[in-house]
Design a protein around this nucleic acid. Structure first.
Lengths: 194, 194, 194, 194
DNA sequence: GATGAATGAGGCTTCATTCAT
DNA sequence: TATGAATGAAGCCTCATTCAT
């Protein structure tokens, strides 16, 4: 890869991060190209050098966030420890993401009033892949008799739903620090599957 | 109350319900005054006879939905049965709401990109009141030794978060019917607090 | 038809005429919605109350002009005089249009960089209908042995092409007045078909 | 002239030809500097090394085309054959141009929504010169009693107008091939002047 | 000579809002 | 009460143009 291409990729990522930040503050429609550009001290027009249009930009935001999240989760999924521990680590990771990178992470959750169906499909596939990583660990834990649950999908939905909700209420300066929150959630949620 | 005032109230409610329907299909920004009015075979202009502006309309949408939801929950809260049963009923009610009246229910959950702070406060208060109803039953269940949990707020957040998530994925023609879903969720979520 | 509908139609026509005027001055792309509106002391936005978008407006411009022109030509086509006289009258009419209503008439001629194919088709049909009116009189004149020409289509193209060209050069304050021009053109062009 | 200057001229001509091609496909406004450059595998920016701005480029397009056309016509004008034959050849040449080099030829005809008046004047002069070549042969034919026409200018306008119209309708795969078309047009148009 | 990147003006379009009737 | 018509701000997007490298 040539240097110039690298520079372009770098810039694209900057723009994507800026977009994510604004979008999480104001929603898809609320985020304007103007504002996204201003965040980086660019002008509107420059964005169109890097992205075909607003939809394309939003699409690539999802792409980036999901790709990163999937990768990170995969590491925990493959650790050679008990399935309970693996799941506990995955829960912690997900929570850390949801809190510390609230802005990027929202992308995974919010419904899509935005995409044309052809752009929507690859995003949905990635989301499924992410969710499936939780399925995998739970299923293997069931096979190993570590977990007693019978409704895999619902269990997974309870886990994801409850964790995603965190960012609706969590305040960094509140009663819990992140680590405590991770532990309490892990304890309580493991009660669901055990 | 004069008859004319009653008629106005009735019309207001119709508009609110129409607005809720559109907003949940398209989001706050996506819902246009035009469309909201069209649903009722009115014209845009007429809406402004009943509501000061769009923000006011959205505000009153939240108001109405939350007021109803709180009332409904209160009934279960006061039933003279075990706390586990009361909580189970409240869970079922919440889920029924989330599925069957998905459109109105979203109002309770979605973050507010829309409100000026002075309109926001009363909404947040009502939301807290709704959430507090869950706190109440859990707390009393703890006192009665029916529940063993120690972190009240987190437990409540897990309950609400996981239930609210349902509408992200639930399809009426999927594997579960509503009743099954209610029961599985109640079973699994009660494991958290017991 | 109700009064209000009439008023709308009237306004639509005003806008169309304004649009035609600007478009003939500056071309399709050169004519801005802003300017078209300004001509009528309206604002851009108001145009969209009457027309879906710019393409729709342009389309209706063509529609109006062609419909009028076809009607006017039809009258001459049906007069009970010699075919030479009928054609002479049609030539005069076309020239009068091309000169006196240069602005509206241009619409018939210019190629279409503008239309989506589905809008293009009805326009092309109308144009064919207009051209076909010339074919009809020439053909019947041939049958009646008034005209000796053999290549109908080319003859018609020569007539139309040479007349349309008039507006590229005609100046009202030039050597010829309209009537003289009509007569000279009619004389010379009839030589082609006779 | 230095070699480097020659290279510049060559490049300029390439750009002009590319521009002509695009402009005739999309109109003056529709042709973007981007697209013109892309046709030659250059970048937008490079065009500005050779031309001051878009108007300058368009101007030089007209310049080049008109210069060539005038030269080509002049040859026929000076042949030592009957004036009818000379005019016939000029008609054929013009038609060949109009069909085979449709793209470049349009430059001669289309009105100018683009030029500032100072750029417009030399273009108009060249156009007059081109038209005047037809005048010359007709006038001399009149003097030699080959042509009987009295209104020189109108006759010329009929010739040019009808021929220029060809490209509005001619399809290469239609009923006539180019040679047939040239002959029919020449026959019919000579009827006008004879 | 040429490129990549950016700017900024201007165009189309949408929509909350207003107001005379 | 309600409508029809209009306004004006704001958003998306395009493109001629510039300029450092």
């Amino acid at each position: 890869m040539k240097l110039s291409e690298k520079r372009v990729l770098k810039k694209k990522e900057q723009i994507i991060l800026s977009a994510i930040k604004i979008m999480n503050r104001k929603g898809y429609n609320g985020a304007t190209m103007e504002e996204i550009a201003a965040e980086l001290l660019m002008t509107k027009g420059a964005l169109y050098y890097y992205f075909k249009n607003k939809e394309d930009l939003i699409y690539q935001c999802h792409e980036l966030v999901l790709t990163n999240a999937i990768e990170e989760l995969q590491a925990h999924l493959e650790e050679l420890v008990s399935y309970e521990t693996r799941l506990r680590n995955m829960i912690k990771t997900h929570i850390a993401y949801a809190i510390k990178e609230k802005e990027t992470f929202n992308m995974i959750l919010k419904p899509d009033e935005t995409f044309s169906s052809e752009q929507l499909k690859p995003i949905l596939l990635k989301r499924q892949k992410y969710a499936h990583q939780f399925d995998t660990v739970i299923k293997e834990g069931m096979k190993a008799k570590e977990f007693t649950i019978t409704e895999l999908k619902i269990a997974r939905m309870i886990l994801l739903g409850s964790m995603n909700w965190i960012q609706q209420w969590y305040q960094p300066d509140g009663k819990f620090n992140v680590e405590e929150l991770q532990n309490v959630y892990a304890d309580y949620l493991l009660k669901v599957v055990k």
